[in-house]
């Protein structure tokens, strides 16, 4: 056969949407959506232009942060954030353990299962900031409301993952323990605990990290911590102080990430 008998054209066959008409509909749909969506964005360009100068000041503040002039505020915010992070993680995890066990289908009777799963669902569906708004309204401004917010959010996170872990444990080991005539508590202690504890420790450390980051946010709505300091600094257009706060947050998150990976290795 000579080479000329072979086709000279080849087109890559479509991989995802195989039908040509659907593909066209989809492409037009995406373009129309983008046009509509971008159309809703009203930009006041003079305002943005003014903003650029402020943006530049912020970048400068970030590069030359001012730790000193607001140091007492920063220190207070930092102490509140760190203490709130630790206490809320401890309390949250402590409450999560029974709820997580209750939300595991293989350990809990159905009615307990549904109660615990709904607690988890509520905690996960509501954002920290929204919870914080309500708790601040109830308990007043300050880190106590923040502590409650983060504890509540921790429950949704840890209990869900813990329950999923327990549901995935090796049934064979649980069977073996049950076969010895062990009580329910002994079952949890011997069959479940050894399998999920390492994960629980890892998750708690991860949540500690998340709680610190969140503590910087909920301060904006009045729940204390470094977020409140940051909010004040930005309101006063003190970008160098704001830059200092942000750098501290970034630094602590980085330390926490390295620290927790080191601690996890150490504990195993």
């Amino acid at each position: 056969m000579t080479a000329t008998a072979y086709p000279t054209r080849w087109k890559r066959p479509p991989q995802i949407v195989k039908d040509r008409r659907w593909r066209i509909v989809l492409q037009i749909g995406i373009v129309v959506y983008l046009i509509l969506a971008i159309g809703t964005v009203e930009v006041n360009w003079t305002r943005v232009y003014d903003g650029l100068e402020r943006g530049q000041r912020f970048v400068m503040g970030f590069l030359q942060p001012d730790f000193t002039s607001r140091w007492t505020d920063i220190r207070q915010g930092l102490i509140e954030s760190l203490t709130m992070t630790l206490t809320s993680t401890v309390v949250g995890v402590a409450i999560s353990v029974p709820i997580g066990i209750g939300a595991a289908r293989n350990l809990a009777p159905p009615w307990i299962y549904y109660i615990c799963r709904s607690i988890i669902a509520v905690s996960r569906a509501l954002q920290e900031v929204i919870i914080a708004i309500f708790l601040v309204a109830m308990f007043g401004f300050g880190p106590f409301a923040g502590f409650l917010t983060l504890s509540f959010a921790t429950i949704g996170f840890i209990a869900k993952l813990l329950a999923d872990d327990i549901e995935e444990i090796n049934e064979g080991q649980a069977e073996a323990i049950r076969a010895t005539g062990a009580s329910w508590l002994q079952l949890v202690n011997y069959a479940v605990q050894p399998q999920v504890i390492p994960r629980l420790i890892g998750l708690s450390l991860y949540r500690l990290d998340i709680n610190f980051r969140e503590s910087a946010v909920i301060g904006i709505v009045g729940a204390g911590g470094i977020g409140a300091t940051l909010n004040t600094a930005i309101d006063r257009y003190e970008y160098d102080s704001a830059g200092a706060v942000l750098l501290i947050v970034i630094g602590i998150v980085m330390v926490a990430e390295y620290g927790s990976s080191y601690l996890r290795k150490f504990l195993q």
Binding site: M1, T4, Y6, T8, R12, P13
Partner: peptide, 28 residues
Amino acid sequence: LRRYSGADIQRAYQLLDRVGLMDKADNR
């Protein structure tokens, strides 16, 4: 853009034919 010249595509088809996989060109 996967816009190869006609000669390249012909050659590719010819080679696929040589190794006996002419009908698999569009398979992943």
